[in-house]
């Protein structure tokens, strides 16, 4: 058998093997495709819910903490009365009948000893109302601080993303057109905002409240710091970021026909 005769079947074997190899590769990729398709099908069983984390109430939202504080003040004061009444009735009920009965008949030594105990027990009872008063004072002080540290005007409560609209308190609620636009505005300003954290560590709370007007064309005007932070450097970076962000996208007709006045609170952690 010559080498040419030998090579002919070998070549045909090569072609067949090449085809088998191609089929194997196609089968391999088809298997991957099928597995991914199945995985996608399984994923589809769950209802798709659009969740915007920006719509959730911010951590610095003033309304919620105040409520929480009120609840806390109540919850702090509530357990105390629960604890107090328990020991009080026991000494009162036991010693009172005892001194009455022995007085007319027996020696005076016994009533002298018994009243000593209630006297000792009354002392903490007298102190506890003072504690309650102290708690109330503390709560009041906290509330005063909250008011002082809170936003300087209603502008921030109304316009800050995540603090208003249907999304207030409802996790995953859809955003309104106004909220969507404000989220976009905040993201643009955040992109243009940069600062060196080491330069703003001067102690105290670093939070800058800035009010601005967005014209219908998207141009930002009338930028005003309602309440500056302890760091002037931080305030400057905020102003620069807002100026750099102008012009913003035009205000959609569905949001407002006229210029939009908004307020934003800037902290080193982000924009509220």
């Amino acid at each position: 058998m010559s080498s040419d005769d030998e090579r002919k079947p070998e070549n045909s074997r090569l072609i067949i093997a090449f085809l088998i190899s191609c089929i194997l590769h196609v089968a391999f990729f088809s298997a991957i495709l099928y597995l991914q398709y199945r995985a996608a099908q399984e994923r589809r069983e769950f209802a798709a819910i659009d969740v915007s984390l920006v719509a959730l109430p911010g951590p610095g939202s003033p309304e919620k903490p105040v409520k929480d504080l009120e609840e806390l003040s109540v919850s702090e004061s509530e357990p105390e009365p629960d604890l107090e009444p328990d020991p009080e009735p026991e000494p009162e009920s036991e010693p009172e009948p005892l001194p009455e009965k022995p007085e007319p008949t027996e020696v005076k030594k016994e009533p002298l000893k018994i009243p000593e105990k209630p006297v000792e027990e009354k002392k903490p009872a007298e102190k506890k109302p003072k504690k309650q008063q102290g708690d109330f004072e503390k709560t009041l002080e906290r509330l005063r601080k909250q008011v002082q540290e809170g936003p300087p005007s209603d502008l921030y409560r109304r316009t800050g993303p995540g603090r208003f609209g249907p999304g207030d308190g409802d996790y995953g609620a859809p955003l309104s057109a106004r909220e969507q636009y404000l989220v976009e505005v905040v993201s643009i300003i955040r992109r243009n905002w940069s600062f060196t954290p080491q330069l703003i560590r001067q102690g105290g709370k670093v939070k800058t409240y800035v009010a601005m007007t967005i014209e219908t064309g998207g141009v930002i005007s009338d930028i005003r710091i309602d309440r500056g932070s302890v760091s002037s450097y931080f305030d400057d970076t905020v102003i620069k970021a807002i100026e750099k962000s102008s012009p913003l996208p035009p205000v959609p007709m569905s949001v407002d026909n006229k210029a939009l006045r908004i307020g934003l609170a800037f902290t080193p952690e982000g924009i509220e």
Partner: peptide, 18 residues
């Protein structure tokens, strides 16, 4: 790399039999 893989598997199949 896909071409390499196809060709190498072709050779593997042919040589395994041969």
């Amino acid at each position: 790399l896909l071409l390499f893989s196809v060709l190498s598997w072709t050779i593997i199949l042919v040589k395994a039999g041969r």
